[in-house]
Design a protein around this nucleic acid. Structure first.
Lengths: 237, 237
DNA sequence: CTGTTGTGTGAACAGTGTTCTCGTGCCCGC
DNA sequence: GCGGGCACGAGAACACTGTTCACACAACAG
């Protein structure tokens, strides 16, 4: 039976990731240590190298895990909203952006690993991270795109944004729309990027503690921000 | 001559900080190592402890240095704008916020140390960092406050913001205004905080690389953002 | 049953921060 | 001017870290 070997291998691999994740949550990146993981599994440090390429590889695993869970949280919120009312895209966008922050404040260590300053001495391999890191933004952009197609986006807002958009940035947005095949004109993309910057910026500031001296607690403020963002997007229910 | 001893001490202290700063810029936080600094100064590692309380203390020093330089850059830009036209507060705010990002992208390592995810295993002592970390925000808020006193802030914008402000957050802003003695009502504080979140959020995303897949280059986009922020603040020239 | 392959061990090496003991040279006060 | 004291520096040691290696054992395949 070959399955037994593979199953055991998968089990210890999972245990390694679980242990590493626990240490990440409890002590930050510095706390995820091969020796600590080995102690948890009652195993020699060198044995870990049978399952993981080293500490960097372990961190990469935690990184994609964080990105994935973050994106999953956003997707779940959007899906739930759409299940309640498939036509209320404003509600879906709001739900997604609310979950964007919600997961982040609930998992500060993972969020810090994913979106904080690049971990010293460790460069995340782009081929494994970019695709998943972009998921939440893509989901929101997709919602906005279908709203635009359905005529739920105020054209005045879009044209107003067009007047403040320079040619270079517009060209970049057009390229982005073509690359991801979003049926959106550059000014609409700009609106979405504006919104995303505000949401991500707020989240970063809150999780990293830069918001604490300004606004506390932040829940009500963020809800107001969400309402204003939906309005700024020109989204009609 | 007692000055000789103190002078020499100050010199080596400066050399230590200079070396640490160089390593920070070249290799990130992980690169600033007591042994590397000792090698630079041609000194034993243990000798460093005569000047620095340990690596954490060294990082704290670099941290307050980063905060200070960042705030100095903002102040210099604001001062230069005010020297050109003391009455154009919108220009002064724009200059300050432009410098806020400018210094950050020019010094990514220091910025990451100051505003990135909390460095693993190291907690910055609040008593040494909070005061200086808050300087740029205070400066901008001060400009906005004098503009408000001079009647340069559109009252309609303020009242509009008031309608989206909940009581709890408003109370927090009032407390902030009282604590810092800003002559601003809560909705005006909210406007300034909104602006600051957008500026800092954008800067963080750019320095940490999360903006790259969306908008590149970012200069023109940021300039447009500044114009819109000034408009959203209700600031008249 | 034999051999290959997967798995685990322990030692070793090169780093790191931190602490200790021990000199030694210089400044300060007498 | 000249000891006494103290700041400074050196080096070893300890406890960590990641990584690699040679070796041993057990499980599976033929």
């Amino acid at each position: 039976m070959v399955a037994t070997r593979e199953r055991r291998r998968q089990e210890t691999t999972d245990a390694i990731l679980r242990s590493a994740r626990t240490h990440l949550e409890r002590a930050g990146v510095e706390g995820v240590t091969l020796r600590a993981v080995a102690r948890d599994l009652d195993i020699a440090v060198s044995a870990l190298y049978r399952y993981v390429d080293g500490r960097d590889d372990l961190l990469t695993e935690l990184l994609v895990e964080a990105f994935t869970e973050h994106a999953d949280a956003v997707d779940a919120a959007v899906d739930a909203s759409l299940a309640t009312d498939p036509d209320d895209l404003a509600a879906a966008v709001t739900a997604g952006l609310r979950a964007y922050r919600g997961w982040s404040v609930a998992h500060p260590a993972q969020f810090g690993l994913a979106f904080g300053a690049p971990v010293p001495g460790y460069h995340a391999p782009a081929d494994r991270t970019v695709a998943v890191a972009v998921r939440p933004g893509s989901r929101i952009m997709g919602l906005f795109a279908t709203a635009y197609e359905r005529g739920l986006v105020d054209e005045d807002v879009v044209t107003a944004r067009a007047s403040t958009l320079d040619d270079g940035t517009a060209a970049g947005f057009d390229a982005l729309a073509a690359r991801q095949s979003y049926p959106l004109p550059a000014p609409a993309i700009a609106l979405a990027v504006d919104a995303f910057v505000r949401v991500h910026g707020f989240t970063v500031m809150e999780v990293f503690g830069q918001l604490r001296p300004l606004v506390m607690p932040a829940d009500a403020y963020y809800e107001a921000l969400l309402r204003e963002i939906v309005a700024t997007l020109g989204l009609r229910a």
